[in-house]
């Protein structure tokens, strides 16, 4: 099977590809249809990053999933990132999309403020987002609105704090004891 990859000219896998400046056809398609859905497009290291305003993320995902020629029907990964307690906006949520028919990839990014770390859930678009969002909630404390079952997934239910935040100490707050 040859990668039939007519829609994109991105050699994503090459280690040395750093074609900055060439606008990605994926971002261009999104911008053409809905210019207000993209606030920034970053091309670096052969990967396309589209920064999407929070309120449009579900619409943008649904559009990318169904638009002919794009067909991002596979959510590879969803992960959070904490820039640090002094940064504002503090949190990032990254969506790595993949197409099982076109074989191209794109990253969507949502940035969030600490005091309002809410983002709409994309479980309605891809069901696989369920556990990814639970993990991001568990480790970063980002709330995914309209998520069907937003509970902690890795840490115990009575855990205090969110472990992957930069201000959470590496060894936790207290040593473990069974009592």
């Amino acid at each position: 099977m040859e990668p039939q990859n007519p829609q994109t000219n991105q050699p994503e896998n090459e280690l040395t590809s750093s074609e900055t400046g060439t606008p990605s056809p994926i971002a261009a398609a999104l911008q053409r249809e809905h210019p207000e859905w993209t606030s920034e497009v970053i091309e670096a290291l052969g990967e396309t990053t589209i920064v999407v305003p929070r309120e449009h993320i579900v619409d943008a995902c649904a559009f990318l999933k169904t638009a002919p020629g794009l067909e991002f029907n596979f959510l590879s990964d969803l992960c959070g990132f904490d820039r640090g307690p002094e940064e504002e906006p503090r949190f990032e949520v990254n969506y790595h999309l993949f197409s099982t028919t076109k074989f191209h990839r794109v990253r969507l990014k949502v940035v969030l403020n600490e005091d309002d770390a809410h983002v709409p859930s994309v479980t309605g678009v891809w069901r696989t987002a369920n556990w990814h969002e639970r993990e991001t909630y568990d480790l970063f404390g980002v709330i995914f609105d309209n998520h069907p079952d937003l509970r902690r997934i890795l840490l115990p239910d009575d855990w205090q704090g969110h472990a992957l935040r930069k201000d959470f100490p590496l060894r936790g707050y207290e040593p473990y004891s069974l009592e």
């Binding site: 670096a44 290291l45 990967e47 990053t49 590879s76 990964d77 990254n94 790595h96 993949f98 990839r105 990253r107």
Partner: peptide, 15 residues
């Protein structure tokens, strides 16, 4: 910078 690198591990896509 940031990268997402997928490979085919024995269980599936390891990114």
């Amino acid at each position: 910078g940031e990268v997402y690198h997928p490979i085919e591990a024995s269980k599936g896509e390891l990114g």
